[in-house]
Write a protein that binds this DNA or RNA. Structure first.
Lengths: 219, 219, 219, 219
DNA sequence: AATGAATGAGGTTTCATTCAT
DNA sequence: AATGAATGAAACCTCATTCAT
């Protein structure tokens, strides 16, 4: 990229290099995500990852110790924004429980189905989980269980306040968000061709309608 | 086939070779399933598959053309029983729609969650689908869409007869069976450690309760 | 082929078996020749050889110790008829030297170019000679050198009798039969598509005309 | 390409890598030629080829796609110089037809018999032609047929001018160069031990004497 | 005599990783 | 910082050979 030998006084050149240096890990992780999704961990060649960003294999080893490290960084990059958004959620605990539930479900749709890489994270964890159990554990603990816990809390509050019917099943809060995962599963299997893209809006409405109908107290 | 004159008592002796030959493909497919689940397609070595059944790599190539063929056979072996069971279902279209729906959902639990390899099939398709798109298409067409179609038909009949509320969402029938898939997803990610094993019974009850509450006509 | 268990008195049955046993080695050698010609020694699979005569790999090992033995037998089967015909030749040393030469050359054409497997023998020796040097040596000694020796003798006699010009080159008698080998070389390279098939007759005439014109004493 | 500031004296140091890279394909092709000649295509192991030039098998795959490509490159390397020399020949169409013929035949000796790898090319084509028919076709079209065509033209001219006898056989010009091929055949079968080495000079003279005697107009 | 399932050595090919430039 | 030639461990796949039937 930068080849002309210049006198030692060139200070802003160093700045450019620094910038590249800053940008590289992110570029690598992005490119690696695409390849891992396309081929799976074992079948992905670091050379292809490198070519995507116009460098060569060797460059990746400047920023990462090994292929495994690259994979971990990819998962990390996918989990982080979800974690960030989850942190925001806590602040605004207001409105009816139905509103809260809807808001939570909409957030999950955004993270998992709307977000292009949302289902990708899940798919990578399912596909390569046996090789990276610590990543699966982390995801389960920090993402999945938290999302379920929020449902559990909303349910408890709604039942306590009489907004939800008292005999609503509470033992398995995940069933209230299951349609999100089902759509995610569809995206995992069919990628860009999934129906998830076309019907996202009406699907979400059906999901929420189902859940609220089930929770609505009977006369 | 067999012409050497033998002592008349040794009749079933003829088949020892034959018997082994009959058994081998099944043994290979079983062993391959375990390895593919553990390591994924690319990272699985046929030598390990062979060792599981006490033979050497060469033997696998007597029965299968290539590693890919073995994989396809594994998927085939997992799909076949599901297809068989689906064929049975059609006969017994009787009872209330609620019963039908419950019966259908229970069948799905059996196929996907209770059956040890039910989630395995899904996981393999998700993990290796990019390499075997025709298998994903087959599964989608012959298994997934059929299961959804049955839900759609039950819903239509139930609404028509007044057994289900008339404004129940029907555009996305898959949301009624989504909790099954959510449990499957859990098994996919956590394997034997999944909560799916421990709580299957109460989870199923919660699922059905949720669905029927949502479909019950309001006074 | 023969599977009905029969009472021990069946004597002519043994005869059939014996016949098969007699025929087998020849069948194997014929089939092996075809395969060796088509694929070369290393790339030939004994299984394909066996299939050509409707038996299986194992059968070949009843009659031959190893693949190498089969190859040696193939070469032997090709050399034998040539040796036999060479033996005949000696008897009939009569007529003019030109006649003798013509007769010798015609014999070579028959053995090497007309005979479907004549060029095949040469080709196998050239292709696999490095692995079977003793076969090459044998061929050189028993076939090639003898054919050249005959030319040398005819030349000497013709020059002595004044039938051939006295300054004809005699140091390298093989040049007088070279066109035969050139045609063989063409067959080796182009197999059935070689021009050798179509033009054999006129080629032979041209060859003999060339040689006799060169040997004819100048006025 | 090369950006690290270096002491000004090391200018040709830049190219060490480059030089090796330039040299490698040639080294591989040379080494492969030796192995292919010794063992044949199928029995040659690329590891042995690599060891000959002090690298490992992987290195070969940096420069060639596959073993077949290496073989094609070997043939290409052998044909190229022949083609180059043939191109030179055209310019100098002068002198008597006898001179021209002699010159052409001498050229063939040089290409096919004197040149250490001349007969090797032929032997590889004969041995492996069934697997690489396009190479045989190429050789036939670009080398063999051209050499024969030149003979045909010289004959025609010589006969027309009365330099050659009018009834000389012209239908099969290859018979005039056959002794070259016969010598080549000898080299193919006996390699370094062939008589071709020792007697090249007198053999050539005998060949030309034979041909010119046959073509000389009688009284 | 014939079979053909099984073996296992051996070959081609791939690719993560290293390191001199 | 970046390169990319080289390495070498592995994996797939083939097939000569064996041997129980």
């Amino acid at each position: 990229m930068q080849s002309t030998p210049r006198p030692p006084s060139a200070t802003e050149n160093i700045g450019i290099r620094e910038q590249v240096k800053q940008r590289r890990p992110g570029e690598i992780v992005n490119a690696a995500y695409e390849e891992f999704m396309l081929k799976g961990y074992a079948a992905t060649r670091l050379e292809d990852v490198a070519r995507r960003i116009g460098v060569t294999k060797g460059t990746i080893y400047i920023y990462f110790q090994s292929k495994e490290e690259v994979f971990r960084a990819v998962i990390g990059a996918l989990v982080t924004p979800i974690l960030d958004r989850a942190a925001e959620f806590k602040a605004q605990f207001a409105g009816t429980c139905a509103d809260l539930l809807r808001h939570h479900i909409e957030g999950l749709y955004r993270d998992i189905c709307a977000e292009p890489r949302g289902a990708g994270l899940l798919r990578l964890l399912i596909a390569e989980g046996e090789k990276f159990p610590e990543l699966v554990d982390f995801y389960h603990r920090e993402v999945a269980e938290r999302a379920i816990k929020i449902v559990r809390e909303i349910l408890a509050q709604g039942i306590a306040s009489g907004e939800f019917r008292s005999d609503a099943p509470v033992a398995h809060p995940e069933i209230y968000i299951a349609p999100v995962m089902m759509l995610a599963l569809d995206k995992m299997m069919h990628g860009e061709k999934s129906r998830a893209h076309a019907t996202a809006g009406s699907y979400l409405e059906a999901h929420i309608k189902l859940v609220l109908a089930a929770l609505h107290p009977t006369a």
